[in-house]
Amino acid sequence: MLLIDCPYCGPRNGSEFAWQGVPSPRPDPASTTPLEWRRYLYEEDNLAGWVEERWKHRSGCRAYLIIERHTATNEIRAVRLLGGTPL
């Protein structure tokens, strides 16, 4: 069970959070091509190591968070609000 230090709620069990993976930027809908769009929909780097992922404190404050997590050890070294600075 991960322990995630939510900037609003403090340390909470990982089961309160929903994982959303490493976000990829949404192509410009006006000019996108099928190939570019489907890369956006489906392709993944799927790295083994430190990644910046998006999580949601779904069973808590429902904030969207960016979490730096090591995908091989599940170690977490930083949690911050999406689009915001650390509180």
């Binding site: 993976g21 489906y42 392709e43 993944e44 780097d45 799927n46 083994a48 995908t71």
Partner: peptide, 9 residues
């Protein structure tokens, strides 16, 4: 090999 896949482990 420079191939990117639609896979999450």
């Amino acid at each position: 090999a420079g191939v990117k896949l639609p896979i999450v482990t």
